[in-house]
Amino acid sequence: MPTFTIAEIEQAINVWRNRQASGEDAALCPRARHLANIYGAMIYSHATTIDVSSLSAGQVEAVTTALYQQELPL
């Protein structure tokens, strides 16, 4: 099964943080927020990888878009 590493999830969060501004309340943009939930759970459980099949389609899209596409959608 394909997996993402915790480093890849962190990198994707940072791409979205740099690409899309935080809201007025300093909240992360929606894509980064969805990935932050995964990242936090991985830290809590001491996981170094996560199976792609355990993620929603939106979460997979957020990671793959951030990591593998040159032009990111706004």
Rank of each mutant, 00 (worst) to 15 (best):
V52C: 06
A26S: 14
A12I: 00
A66P: 12
G58V: 05
A41K: 11
L67K: 13
A36H: 10
I6P: 13
D51W: 03
V63A: 11
A7C: 02
L67N: 08
M42H: 07
Q20S: 08
A66R: 15
E71T: 08
T49I: 00
G58C: 04
R31H: 06
Y68R: 15
G23K: 14
A7Y: 06
Q59A: 11
L67Y: 07
P73V: 00
F4R: 12
S45V: 04
T48S: 09
G40H: 01
Y68I: 02
A32R: 13
T65H: 07
I38L: 06
R31C: 00
V60F: 08
A41M: 07
S56K: 15
E61I: 08
S53C: 12
P2V: 04
A7P: 05
L55V: 04
A62M: 03
I13Y: 07
S45L: 10
L72H: 13
L74T: 13
C29E: 08
L55H: 13
T5Y: 05
V15T: 07
P73I: 01
V15G: 05
I38G: 03
I6Q: 09
I50Y: 03
L72T: 02
A62K: 07
T5N: 04
R19H: 15
I9N: 09
Y68A: 02
F4I: 00
I9P: 12
P73S: 04
A66Y: 06
Q70D: 13
V15E: 06
Y39E: 07
I38V: 14
I9F: 06
L55S: 11
A12V: 00
G58H: 11
V52G: 07
R31V: 00
A21S: 14
L67H: 11
T5L: 02
G58R: 07
A32F: 02
G40R: 10
I50D: 07
Q70M: 04
H34S: 12
S56R: 15
T64P: 12
A66M: 01
E10V: 00
V63W: 10
T3M: 04
Y44V: 06
V63P: 13
I13C: 06
N37S: 14
